[in-house]
Design a protein around this nucleic acid. Structure first.
Lengths: 132, 132
DNA sequence: TCAAACCCTCACATCAATGTGAATGCAAAC
DNA sequence: GTTTGCATTCACATTGATGTGAGGGTTTGA
């Protein structure tokens, strides 16, 4: 897969794919002419990168986390590479993610509660109007 | 409360407090000399703003959501002001929050699963070694 | 009264993510 | 073989969230 196709499959501009590579988030083979060549997993990886960027993480943090987030199943574990410092950093990062999740959850729930208060969801309306 | 005290209570630089005001996230009375004067609720509001910013929302979105997130209990409801378009926008925003939450949750779980795989948590270790 | 500490506005600097364009090269189709 | 489209790199611009400093007024306390 060339960069244009990867861009089409993911909806991410080629400019950004090159940028992610420059930031160490994405790697590509090169064939003789210098064109980047991506394998199938790149699509998943790009969508994962986008999800994390949209969630407010920086490319720097994503680069540090990505090796440990590789898809379900194929966990990339080389315990001997996991220094205590690295483990601590990963735990701290997980805690930061947890804090974000909590903050967003609280606010989403508040938003939904408000909407439901002023404009009860359709099913409720039907129920309360037909049940009387 | 003047801006310096609010800054101390929240840990947010005065520069940022003024910026949030400029972006419509935070409002303040002015007293005769032109100094900003904040009430007690400002502390909560600022920490809420910071949480949302740290979660990757822009000031623009936060400004739109804030009126509907005002603390527990005191829900600021004026249903007659809630046009269908506004309601739809709020629902869309809630959905976006949900997507972020899911993405972050997935990745936090993956991270914790990895950590637990290579370095089981202390309690588990104790359990498995004392229970046999 | 004088200094220190606070406040104001204004403006320029920075950093990360992204847009955009120039100059150039390869490839497939006519 | 020339055109058309996609690829390359390089470089400058922009946007949003911040940092930082200049220049000037206010409050407070010795």
């Amino acid at each position: 897969m060339k960069i244009g196709q990867l861009s089409q499959h993911t909806g991410v501009p080629t400019r950004m794919l090159r940028y992610y590579e420059e930031q160490g988030l994405l790697c590509a083979e090169r064939d003789a002419n210098g064109y980047r060549r991506y394998d199938q997993g790149a699509v998943h990886r790009v969508t994962q990168i986008r999800g994390l960027l949209d969630s407010g993480l920086t490319t720097e943090i994503i680069a540090k986390l990505l090796p440990y987030l590789d898809g379900p199943g194929q966990i990339h574990l080389h315990p001997q590479c996991l220094t205590p410092e690295l483990a601590a950093m990963l735990r701290a990062e997980a805690a930061r993610l947890g804090a974000r999740i909590d903050c967003l959850s609280r606010n989403r729930d508040a938003l939904l509660a408000y909407l439901d208060a002023v404009q009860p969801s359709t099913s409720d309306v039907i129920l309360s109007s037909t049940a009387r």
